[in-house]
């Protein structure tokens, strides 16, 4: 496979950010005089692992990357289903819910757009309802169907849009589907970090104090501005977007990334937990990491799809 130099440069840039972030995290924690490796160091360490896995998959090609994204969906769905109240009578329905993952990512891998776009919203919705009614338990029927299907939409359908980027026609974007995927993931995650950092630096007024008391207007605006700048700088190399469209993409990712983050926060608050899991030291669970991607992946995909494909 001929790997596009732009994509390679982008990956190198991401590692560059990590190389700068590592001593910075140490310095900040040293200044606060923490005795052991604090949360910030743990978080950067987890970033190294995540970025390395993602880069390795991307370098190995579209098939491996699709497998990795499918596996992320599996982890996210499993984490979600482990957190929500479920019933023993749901076990068979949950099993079918897991089976949608390989199918959905297969549709993405072969680029069958028609099936990809209706499989979970239509077929999975109907099959899950039908499978559930055949079990015959009517108590909490609506609640369990609703929660299971919502989970599938967020963790499988939404995230699989990132995989479909790889199946789009190669010659439209300057660095192919891989470039689009790197652009989406880089901007989404950078936006998360930027909103967090700006939120720490400035801003007192909370955006949604009852859901996520840490989120300030300063953080949201500063984060979106940062994302906008990075979008403008990287779009010509990784995407077919012109500068005005790149501003649109930056805003979509900045704002919707924030929304994805607080939506998962609201779910966790509803359940009564702080972190969705312990898979990623310093971050929490996998849902804590891909929360913004559940919003940015489908929105960026359809924005791009409408404009260019």
């Amino acid at each position: 496979m001929n790997f596009h130099p732009h994509a390679l440069w982008a990956l190198a840039g991401i590692f560059g950010i990590l190389i700068l972030a590592t001593p910075t995290a140490h310095l900040i924690e040293k200044r606060r005089q923490l005795p052991t490796a604090g949360e910030l160091t743990l978080r950067v360490r987890s970033w190294w692992i995540m970025v390395s896995l993602f880069s390795a998959a991307v370098l190995l090609g579209a098939t491996v990357t699709t497998w990795l994204l499918g596996f992320i969906s599996f982890l996210a769905l499993k984490e979600y289903l482990s957190l929500i109240p479920t019933r023993r009578s749901d076990r068979r329905v949950l099993f079918w819910a897991y089976l949608t993952i390989p199918l959905q990512y297969y549709w993405a891998a072969i680029g069958w757009y028609g099936m990809f776009i209706i499989f979970i919203p239509v077929y999975a919705l109907l099959v899950i309802s039908a499978r559930k009614v055949l079990i015959g338990e009517t108590e909490d029927f609506l609640r369990s169907m609703g929660t299971i299907h919502w989970g599938l939409m967020m963790t499988v359908f939404s995230i699989s849009h990132a995989a479909f980027l790889l199946a789009l026609p190669e010659d439209v974007a300057p660095a192919g589907g891989v470039g689009l995927l790197i652009y989406l993931v880089l901007l989404t995650e950078l936006n998360d970090v930027a909103q967090y950092v700006w939120g720490k630096r400035l801003g007192k007024r909370k955006v949604v104090p009852r859901v996520s008391p840490g989120k300030t207007w300063g953080g949201l605006i500063g984060g979106c501005a940062t994302t906008l700048v990075v979008s403008l700088a990287s779009a010509p190399f990784l995407t077919p977007l012109n500068p005005i469209e790149a501003v649109g993409a930056g805003l979509i990712i900045g704002l919707s990334g924030f929304l994805g983050d607080v939506v998962i926060s609201a779910v966790k608050r509803d359940i009564g937990i702080k972190d969705s899991g312990s898979l990623l030291p310093g971050h929490g669970g996998i849902l804590d990491r891909v929360d913004s991607l559940t919003f940015t992946a489908p929105l960026f995909f359809h924005y791009l799809y409408y404009l260019y494909y």
Binding site: F74, K78, S82, T86, R91, L94, F95, Y98, G277
Partner: peptide
């Protein structure tokens, strides 16, 4: 939840 007594089908949970 993953594999209770009397069930043969394993359903993944953390």
């Amino acid at each position: 939840k993953s594999l209770p007594k009397g069930e043969g089908l394993l359903v993944p949970f953390f």
